[in-house]
């Protein structure tokens, strides 16, 4: 899933302090699962903002809505008939949802309510960690199912570096060394020999480096 974190309330207040009618829009997908921008977080933020403005002596109306997804036309359309009532929207969706909202409702200011962090997994309750950077040419088949691009601090394709210490990465004792994980799993899979195959220089043109990306599937287009 896409993992996000709540933005500090101060920052949000700064964005929205000059508006009178606000819509706080959550998203029912990833940000709900990582407890950053679902219905619950919408409620908390709305309540906090209401109290803040009240305390400041400002009259601000704040409505709440949580859409099934903000990265899909279908669900974003659900608020079309009332979007004009609002001076601004605070979207608690990931950066994709915020932008899709802004594209769709071109004349309404839209602000982000979360910091979108990465694509990751829920390691345990309350702990999420990165697993993929969407490089566009997945090499997991050659790295024992562990991604060195997203999980090695130096994205080494031929690791580990000389800083790998007791299974941890040189940059932090709290971070597993991706290459230690790869080696452990290669052994488990009885494929340790494969370690010595040199991973060729990567084509990064399908990654961020190649410019904004697009996937077009003629077979599923209408």
């Amino acid at each position: 899933m896409i993992v996000a974190e709540k933005k500090p309330i101060e920052e949000i207040i700064d964005y929205v302090k000059d508006f009178q009618k606000l819509l706080i829009a959550g998203c029912n997908e990833c940000v709900t699962v990582c407890e950053a921008g679902g219905k619950k977080e919408v409620g908390i933020l709305a309540s906090a903002l209401r109290m803040y403005f009240m305390n400041e002596g400002k009259k601000v109306d704040i409505d709440e809505v949580t859409l099934e997804r903000q990265c899909d036309h279908e669900y974003l359309e659900e608020i079309r008939d009332r979007i004009d009532q609002y001076d601004a929207v605070l979207s608690l969706a990931c950066g994709v949802g915020v932008q899709f909202m802004a594209e769709k409702y071109f004349s309404t200011p839209v602000f982000p309510g979360v910091n979108t962090c990465f694509m990751g997994a829920a390691e345990e309750r309350g702990v999420w960690s990165e697993r993929c950077q969407g490089c566009g040419q997945c090499i997991l088949g050659k790295t024992a199912g562990i991604c060195p691009i997203s999980r090695c601090a130096k994205r080494l394709l031929n690791g580990p570096c000389g800083g790998s210490t007791k299974g941890k990465c040189e940059i932090s004792k709290d971070l597993d060394c991706a290459w230690q994980l790869i080696i452990d799993r290669l052994k488990e899979l009885d494929r340790f020999d494969e370690y010595e195959q040199i991973m060729p220089i990567k084509d990064w043109s399908t990654e961020r480096a190649g410019g904004p990306r697009k996937v077009v599937r003629e077979d599923v287009r209408l």
Partner: peptide, 26 residues
């Protein structure tokens, strides 16, 4: 490959790692 930038004076900077040391040898 080099030490990660977070050890130095530019921890907020980008790194590149387009290729690694093995590939630089090549």
């Amino acid at each position: 490959s080099g030490d990660h930038q977070n050890f130095g004076d530019s921890a907020q900077g980008q790194n590149v790692f387009d290729i690694d040391s093995m590939q630089l040898i090549q």
